[in-house]
Simulated assay, not measured.
Amino acid sequence: MLRIVLINILLFLLPFLIYAAYVVWVKGVAANRAMAGAPFLWLILAGLIVLFVGLLTLVEFTGGDREGSYQPSVLEDGVIKPGGIN
């Protein structure tokens, strides 16, 4: 769960990091002043868009087979056999 939260935070902060790197590299501003005067509204919107696209991609391309049927976990001979989608 922590991995997913950290990935979501990174996806949201990605536009901020790219903007700061651009300002430092191209405009030659000191790293500690890179975010002074930044267009925060646009960066927040871009971060939300990147986060939303990332979440949609995660939902679309991960998980089990959508056409299968779910088989719950069962207890056989004192051993739990894990469930899954068949």
Rank of each mutant, 00 (worst) to 15 (best):
M1N: 06
L2R: 11
L2V: 09
R3E: 12
I4P: 07
V5R: 10
V5G: 05
L6E: 09
I7S: 10
L11G: 02
L14K: 02
L14V: 04
L14E: 07
P15D: 00
P15G: 01
L17P: 00
I18V: 15
I18M: 11
Y19C: 06
A20Y: 01
A21H: 06
A21S: 04
Y22E: 05
Y22L: 05
V23P: 09
V26T: 10
K27G: 08
G28K: 15
V29E: 14
V29P: 08
V29C: 11
A31K: 11
A31T: 12
A31W: 15
N32T: 13
N32M: 11
R33T: 14
R33D: 14
A34M: 04
M35Y: 13
A36W: 10
A36L: 12
A38F: 08
A38C: 11
P39L: 03
L41H: 09
L41Q: 07
W42R: 07
L43E: 02
I44P: 09
I44Q: 07
I44M: 12
I44E: 07
A46D: 02
G47M: 00
L48F: 04
I49L: 02
V50G: 03
L51P: 00
L51S: 02
F52E: 01
L55Y: 06
L56M: 04
L56P: 03
T57V: 12
L58F: 13
E60A: 12
E60D: 08
E60C: 08
T62V: 09
T62K: 08
G64N: 10
G68P: 08
G68V: 07
P72A: 02
V74E: 15
E76A: 10
P82A: 13
G83S: 01
G84I: 03
I85L: 11
I85Q: 09
N86I: 07
N86Y: 12
